[in-house]
Every structure is written in structure tokens, then in C-alpha cells.
């Protein structure tokens, strides 16, 4: 996902919204850079329970397909998904930067 497209440029008072209302989405903030370890999905082991999606505190797991797909732009590497997975279909690996 292109975080840049959500950016709001304020260079002076003329660019300010009429009241202090937040108009931009935090999607601009790619929290994937916080990650030290990275979850890796092993599709063959997935039983389709969606527990990883249900408990991901960063809402960055997509379950529209037939196994979870992690959005590494936002995944902070907390490890909850791997820990909650009942079939060990997600493992945490060293992050390579």
C-alpha cells in the first residue's frame, strides 16, 4: 500500500482545516519499520480459523483469501498471531533489514 497518498501537507495557516479536525488517515504511518521479528505464514498448516486476524493488534492480516496474508507495511512484529495460532501455521523469524 502506498502510504504517501494519505499524506497531508500543511505549509501555513492557509492549508489548515476550518477547525481542528483530523482529515488524514494514520495509514500514512508505516509501522512495519518497528518490527524486529517477522511472522511467516505456512499456508499448508493453516486450518482457516482466523484467530490470527481476530487478535492482531495492528489489524494488518487479510483473510479474504484462503489463508492469512500479512501486510508487512504495518505489522509491528508483536508475535500475537503466531502465539495464538493453534496449528503453528505462523512462525516468527528474524527480521532482515
Amino acid at each position: 500500500m502506498m502510504a504517501e497518498k494519505y499524506e497531508i501537507k500543511i505549509s501555513g495557516a492557509k492549508d489548515m482545516p476550518p477547525m481542528a479536525a483530523s482529515l488524514g488517515k494514520m495509514l500514512v504511518n508505516k509501522t512495519g519499520s518497528w518490527r524486529n521479528i517477522r511472522p511467516l505464514v505456512i499456508p499448508e498448516k493453516c486450518n482457516g480459523c482466523s484467530l490470527c486476524w481476530k487478535f492482531c493488534p495492528d489489524f494488518c492480516i487479510n483473510i479474504d483469501g484462503d489463508y492469512p496474508i500479512i501486510n508487512y507495511d504495518y505489522c509491528k512484529g508483536c508475535g500475537v498471531c503466531a502465539h495464538e495460532c493453534p496449528t503453528e501455521a505462523i512462525v516468527m523469524e528474524e527480521e532482515i533489514k
Binding site: 502510504a3 488517515k25 494514520m26 495509514l27 500514512v28 504511518n29 508505516k30 509501522t31 518497528w34 493488534p57 495492528d58 489489524f59 494488518c60 501486510n71 507495511d73 504495518y74 509491528k76 512484529g77 508483536c78 508475535g79 500475537v80
Partner: peptide, 11 residues
């Protein structure tokens, strides 16, 4: 709720 929020890991 959008991703990209500022909570700590595992919040």
C-alpha cells in the same frame, strides 16, 4: 480502525 496507529507492539 486503521493500521498505522501509534500503540505499542501487542497493545
Amino acid at each position: 480502525v486503521y493500521s498505522g496507529h501509534l500503540a505499542c507492539q501487542g497493545c
